[in-house]
Simulated scan of single mutants.
Amino acid sequence: MPVAHLLNAPGNEGLRQFFFDPIDDDQQLAGRKIAVIAADGFEEIELLGPVWYFRALGAQVDVVSMKANPAPARFGLTMPEMAQDHIMAIQYLQPVGWVKVDRRVDEIQVADYDAIFIPGGAWNPDNLRNDKDVIAFIQAFNQSGKLVAAICHAPVVLATADILKGKKLTGYWNVHTDLVNAGGQVLDQSVVVDGNLITSRHPIDVADFSRTVAEWLTENKNAK
């Protein structure tokens, strides 16, 4: 899923416009702090698109990941030295580069941020949902009433955190059953807002997802 092909594909004109239109208010999210929680295998546009947008609106955005946890030697896998403090981006299934990690999830507190969001990707959500520190942080953050957002496959991390019961939400089509089994009411639309939860379906929804997160934070200025 090369980003250039995605932006130029018929029907995706709105997504392309999102990235190329000037920002109207570069102070809309000034003073807001957002954590993007991600691990190896995140979908590139689902992380970098919203991060670019929120920073362009004046927010501080940190990339937060788990503690580095190399595969056991018997797996026969080797990772570059960069993997110690970076996470791997993918486009669909193809690795395409690395993003620097700002903080580790066991180093942060709920009070540090006004919102969190989780990008999707082929294996990023599976890495996150298996980490007890990630799950505990999401549960505490949700309990605070602050904004929790997820796109594509990422809502399965929220299912593992057991915060979807009775919630309206969406996600990538092949995880809908998981979301229903977690107690959610799944809708097939580009973005769904239910209280402090915002979810979207796939990379084509990045523009709607990002704008909705920004609008929620603007309308809920006291959600600190």
Rank of each mutant, 00 (worst) to 15 (best):
G41T: 12
F42D: 04
E44A: 15
I45L: 15
I45W: 11
E46Y: 08
E46R: 09
L47T: 09
L47I: 02
L47G: 10
L47C: 13
G49F: 07
G49M: 07
P50I: 06
W52M: 05
F54Q: 05
F54C: 01
A56R: 06
L57V: 03
L57R: 01
A59K: 00
Q60Y: 07
Q60P: 07
V63F: 01
V64Q: 03
M66I: 11
M66E: 02
K67I: 12
N69R: 14
A71F: 08
A73W: 09
R74H: 13
F75R: 12
G76D: 09
L77C: 00
M79N: 06
P80M: 02
P80Q: 07
P80C: 05
P80N: 07
E81M: 01
M82F: 00
Q84T: 12
M88Y: 10
A89Q: 12
A89G: 09
A89M: 12
I90H: 11
Y92K: 15
Q94N: 14
Q94M: 13
P95L: 08
P95Y: 02
W98L: 07
V99S: 08
V99H: 10
D102S: 02
R103P: 01
R103E: 06
R104P: 05
V110S: 10
Y113Q: 03
I116H: 04
F117W: 05
F117S: 04
G120N: 10
G121A: 00
G121E: 01
A122I: 13
W123D: 12
P125E: 10
P125G: 05
D126F: 02
D126T: 09
L128I: 03
L128D: 05
N130H: 15
K132S: 15
D133V: 00
I135C: 06
I135Q: 11
I135S: 03
I135R: 09
A136H: 04
A136Y: 01
I138V: 08
Q139V: 04
A140Q: 15
S144D: 00
G145K: 04
G145N: 03
K146Q: 04
V148W: 00
V148P: 06
A149P: 10
A149M: 07
I151F: 07
C152G: 14
A154Y: 06
P155M: 12
P155R: 13
V156L: 13
V156T: 15
V157Q: 01
T160R: 14
A161S: 07
D162E: 15
L164K: 10
K165E: 14
L169E: 03
L169K: 04
T170C: 09
T170W: 05
T170Y: 08
N174H: 14
L179Q: 08
V180R: 10
N181E: 12
N181W: 00
